[in-house]
Write a protein that binds this DNA or RNA. Structure first.
Ligand code: FES
Ligand code: FES
Lengths: 143, 143
DNA sequence: CAAAAAACATGATATTAATCATATTTAGGA
DNA sequence: TCCTAAATATGATTAATATCATGTTTTTTG
């Protein structure tokens, strides 16, 4: 439902939101250490996120990755989509071509209401929302 | 969240529930064709399900796989657990060691209520429940 | 009892996802 | 301007899933 890569990406984006801005950038290597993600893998993910403008980056000395104000308004779902693709979460869990009320699979009624709720929330919450919770110590980032 | 193998297993079990009993058994090959699952893979899955007594089987000519009355009371979750293992569905979606209210990850409050609901339903619905829906044409099995 | 038909057990291959490595480009500072 | 530090692009390796193949055991039937 959520790939490993998405988890790492989300962790990284939240970490960056808490600890960086235009004049406090951070290198891939350091981020990877802070959130315990393999560094080369982290770098690749961050590059992908930067390309899609989920996060910001600058090259060269004193460069690095960071979050600027417009980045903060991305929703959680946007991050997941960039990594896993749009439809992964919405596809039929039993393998029907498309998942809908009109021709539901046997577990559609079990899965779908909860999943829809979940998706709606992921689409409404921004990374800034979650960052606020983190600052208040209401929630915790995996080591 | 739900492996390919689990999907196939669930499809197969439901198909068997509709079309077999002690004196109407079915071979792996035929089941695989009916539900469009590669036959060797299907056979392996069915053997695993039989070993854990999710379905029944007999060897030799006129043998095959089938569902008996006691098999029918298994829950959907039991099938998923046999294939994917117990904890796969309950683990933290961001990678925290354990998922609980006491030390939640940033998306716990988004994910967990819906997921708990889903799990509870999967644990309460039996394959017989779903088979009834199928008979009434309320739901449909993937080709 | 012998032969054949089926599941069973086990291992091999292929595909995909995760991880690693490295050469290229860009930007800052001496 | 040249050196160096960083991201970027691209591809290679490894690990995990999914898929395939084959020999062994059990049971029915002639
Ligand atoms: S049709 Fe299968 S989950 Fe909706
Ligand atoms: S703590 Fe992460 S999903 Fe519950």
């Amino acid at each position: 439902m959520l790939s490993n890569s998405s988890k790492y990406a989300l962790k990284a984006v939240l970490y960056l939101t808490l600890h960086t801005d235009e004049n406090n950038k951070m290198m891939a290597k350091d981020i990877s250490e802070k959130i315990s993600v393999p560094k080369a893998y982290m770098a690749k993910l961050l590059q992908g996120l930067a390309k899609r403008e989920i996060i910001s980056s600058t090259k060269g000395p004193k460069g690095g990755f960071y979050i600027n104000p417009s980045n903060k308004n991305r929703t959680i779902m946007e991050i997941i989509e960039v990594i896993d693709g749009k439809k992964k979460m919405e596809s039929c869990m039993m393998g029907l071509k498309d998942c809908n009320e009109h021709k539901p699979c046997p577990i559609h009624s079990i899965i779908n209401p909860s999943r829809s709720k979940m998706i709606a929330l992921l689409e409404s919450k921004t990374i800034n929302d979650l960052a606020k919770d983190l600052k208040l110590n209401k929630v915790f980032l995996p080591s």
